[in-house]
Structures are given as C-alpha cells and as structure tokens.
Design a protein around this nucleic acid. Sequence first.
DNA 1: ATAATTTAATTAAACGTTTGTTTAATTCAA
DNA 2: TTGAATTAAACAAACGTTTAATTAAATTAT
Lengths: 206, 206
Amino acid sequence: MAADKREHILAVAEKLFGDKGFDGTSVRDIAQHANVNLAMISYYFGSKEKLLEALLEQRANYTILEALNKDESLTPWEKIDKVIDFYVDKIMNNLCIHNIMQQANRSSTPGIKELTTKIKLRNFEQIKKIVLDGQKKKLFRKVDIEMTVGTVMGTISQVTLARHFYNVLFNIEDGNDEAYRKKMGPKLKSHLKQLLHAHLDIKNEE
Amino acid sequence: MAADKREHILAVAEKLFGDKGFDGTSVRDIAQHANVNLAMISYYFGSKEKLLEALLEQRANYTILEALNKDESLTPWEKIDKVIDFYVDKIMNNLCIHNIMQQANRSSTPGIKELTTKIKLRNFEQIKKIVLDGQKKKLFRKVDIEMTVGTVMGTISQVTLARHFYNVLFNIEDGNDEAYRKKMGPKLKSHLKQLLHAHLDIKNEE
DNA sequence: ATAATTTAATTAAACGTTTGTTTAATTCAA
DNA sequence: TTGAATTAAACAAACGTTTAATTAAATTAT
C-alpha cells in the first residue's frame, strides 16, 4: 500500500538523518534501509530536501503545550512541572527528529530554517506565558525569560546531542536508545524541576 | 611560507565547517575560499578527515580551567563566576569550532568522536571539582553535578546552535558575529550566574 | 462478471555533477 | 642540484535526479 510505504520511508529517513545528519545520509542509504527502489523517493517526495521538509512538518505537531496553558485549574508551579515532564518525554522519545531540528539550522534551505525556527518560537511563547503568569501571581521572581527558556531547551538538547559523552559518564552502551531514555529521562526531569524551582521562586529574590 | 598557509587553511576550514557542517563542506570549497590549490589540502593534512582532526586538536587547548582551579585565593562562588565568564567568552569567540564539536559526534570517525568526548570530560571534571569543594565548605547544597554541568554547557550551546532563533527573537542581523557576541554574551553571563547562585546556594536547600 | 482501458506504482539503467584523492609535471627555494 | 612546494589534470566512486519500460491496481465499458 502506498501510504504505508511513504510512512516507512519517513521513519527510515528520520533514523538516518538523526544518526548521520542530512548531508551525511544519501538517498541510496535511505532506499536501501527502507527496502525500496531508489526512484521511489523522488517519486513520493520530489527530492531529498522535500523529504526532510515533509518529515519536519509531520513530526512537529507540538500542540499539547497550548492545551496545557489553557488549563485554569493548574498553578504556575504545576504548569512548570508539567512542561518539563512533557518536553523531556517528547524529546527523549524522538531523539532523532530533535537532532535533525538542531542540525537543520545550518546549510539547509531557508524554508527548513524558517520552519524549525517557527516551531521553536511557538514553544517559547507558551513557556513565556507560564512564567509571566507566575510573576503576575507573585509566585515567580523577575528573571530573563529568554535565557530561562534557553536553559530548559539547552539542557535537554545537551543530553540528546552530547549523547556519547553521557554514555561514557554513566556507562551506558552506545546506541542503546532504551537504556539512554531510562537513565537520562528521570535525571533530566528531577534536575530541571529543582533548578527551575530555585531559579523562579520569589523567596529567592535577591 | 608553509606554516602560514597551513594556518590559513585551518582558519578557512574552521569557518566553513562551522557554518555548513563537515559533510556540507567540500574540499574544493575550502581550497577556493583559502585561495589554495585543491591538492594542497591532501598535501598538508592527508585527507579531509585528518584536516578536521588537526583543527580540533589545535583549537581545543582548554588549559585555563585547570589553572583557575589551583588558585587557592578564590572562593567557590568566585570560581563559579569565573568559570562562567571564561566559558561564555571562549565559546562566543569561537562559535565555529564549538558548532563543529557539537556536530562531530555523529557520523564522523571514532577518533574524532573520542577526541571531542575527551575534551568535554576534562572540562566536566574541572567544574565538578569546584562544586564538590563548595559543598565541602558548606556553601553549596547537594545537587546533581552531571546535570548541573549539563545545564551550563547546554545553555551556552543552545545560544550558539539555535542562533537563527535568537536572531529573530532579539532582532539581530543574520550572520553578524560581532553583534551576536555583544548582545548574547552579557545576557548569557548574568543569567547563568543568577541561575547557578539560586541553584547552588545552601540557603535554598529544601 | 469479464474484458478493455486508464491510471498509479515500481523497476533497472542511465544521466550529468560533484565528491575526495592521486598523479605526474613544473616551479621554487635551499 | 637536491628536496620541498605548487600546479593542472585526471581518477574512480558516490551523489541526487530522471528516464523509459514494465507491472499492478483501479476504473470504465461491455
């Protein structure tokens, strides 16, 4: 069936782009790993670049944050914790696509650059709302919001990007996605929560 | 002269690898931008991979941290601030090589992978020492050291890797290195100091 | 329902470039 | 005059993409 094959190609491309980068992955690589004729990729997607665009557009449906922000029953503190849980899970379960997005900023076509920036901006705005709300309610102190969000995103990115470094640090087998998730996911969550609580708490205002 | 030419090729390669990635940069690209015959790159370095290795080995002389750590006159708090200043300056003034190191983890030869990991491990150990010392002196509270260092490295990396994102956020012209340094450097420093002070201060122990 | 016809999916082969690297000849400096 | 530096040209391999032919599926007509 056609739709299944398309999806399969996308899944294979995600893995390969994530592991070896866009430029480091050839169309023949993808075709071979997907057990698909080379020409099928041009047939379905038009080109290698378009394949990447299709991949990003399909995988970047970060709509849960908006929903979370509309939930009036949650306090800003609860929202912060939920955002961390959501983000860490999301990225730890999509290591490849996250790596692709981080790398997509260089070289690639302006369209892809703008697409990834748009996604990041949308997420940033949602977290910003939470922090502003917490400040209005006199729970959070004054902080540099842009940099605070950068710390959350950056800490998580660090764990997915410098993966080999953490494999060595924690004796995790290279390439074992499941073991990495299990070890680093909980570590990331509790660290980020503790960090943001100390950072944002109005009691720590200087 | 020979040594100068070698250095010039390294400088050009650094810029191009940093901008377009290792796989996205061709040997002909480098030769052309360096105004050097194509064959000179093989002649001087042996291969494209070896050129990258030479680049990393030359640029990764992070010895200042060790010196800083031996300075007994500084308190742990002062050391933290100095490490942040040092790191931010270092990376903001070497945006390209930092991007290269972040990307070098995928695809590339095991030798390069190990080299970048070794550098990161060395830096990690130095910061770890400072934190442990602060804890021994009852100034810092108990924290997850691996993740804390990850936050520092990750926040800085985020600012260099997601550069286009911050260009949009702060209305900085794309590609203007100097403007980026001037805007983001101070922001990074003051944010990280405030963040770590709240995070590490034993008074914020829960 | 079956045959005819049209559309979609799939293939192997070839296209022209670009890739990293090497060669063999030449120029330069010691 | 010897060895290093530099060059233009060529190398084979890999690249993304296209072509033209074939098979499978869907649609229409009988």
